[in-house]
Design a protein around this nucleic acid. Sequence first.
DNA 1: GCGCAAAGTGGGTAAATGTGGGGAATTATC
DNA 2: GATAATTCCCCACATTTACCCACTTTGCGC
Lengths: 144, 144
Amino acid sequence: MFQGEHKNTMDGKGRVNIPASFRETLRTRYADEQVIVTRDYDGCLRAYPPKEWERSVLSSVRQRDINDEFRRSYERFVISPAITCVPDKQGRILLPATLREYAELDKTVLFAGGASHFEIWDIARRDTRIKEDLTILKKGPPSP
Amino acid sequence: MFQGEHKNTMDGKGRVNIPASFRETLRTRYADEQVIVTRDYDGCLRAYPPKEWERSVLSSVRQRDINDEFRRSYERFVISPAITCVPDKQGRILLPATLREYAELDKTVLFAGGASHFEIWDIARRDTRIKEDLTILKKGPPSP
DNA sequence: GCGCAAAGTGGGTAAATGTGGGGAATTATC
DNA sequence: GATAATTCCCCACATTTACCCACTTTGCGC
């Protein structure tokens, strides 16, 4: 389980440290170090352990018809920019320029745990997003 | 597996470097260097390792009747402009003028990984396309 | 507080990757 | 057949990445 929010700083080379607790989860629960990072359509990046990537992303998209509009968009937007990141000796990953630009990451980035994945945010973006979420939540869930 | 998005620049002669990770995939997974490049009907180019070209393009089209309208269009549009590209010593391929013009490639081009092929895009075209994809994705998947 | 270990940050250097261009060989054009 | 254009095959250089080491900061024990 990836949980909690952690701020780490990205250096000039585009390297960021994965929070130790997330690395711990990767080791113990997935017997793996690497993660698959891609963009999320809320403006952040998402990282999955390879098993989860296969289980919750690839396999679900494959159930759709190959010419399905949603599937094609999803593949272009989510699948194709995905890259496998292997942490270096210090536990850092190098985020490729294209993903960094998309998520507007600069110095301080925020790692946010999800159940079986985690997100990587630019702080400012996350803040505005959280505010939006708050108003959505206060309205309450849709009736049905 | 071809994965990730990579920006490379095409020089005045029409040469572009294939991203190193794609070349790596070609070597290790296909024991080959060359790729077959053709047009895709989303406005970009598509490159296949020869084996995949045979497996996922040629063989599937051959299953259609030779007088089938779709097959005839497909052959004219996709099969016939295809050319085999062999990387030079630096790992670059020379894209023929006709394909370059079709995809409106000029300076900076984007290589986007697919499962068993990759695409070559003009950045601006890809961006507008991605924006469309984003609105499709935010609407959520169709009810199945 | 003090000390230790773990976590996080920064930078140097060699290798790998990407870019540009010259000139010979080949092909096209008239 | 001569000339122009294109392609191929080198070499040289710039940029980026991988790998290593060292330092600072944080958390936690006594």
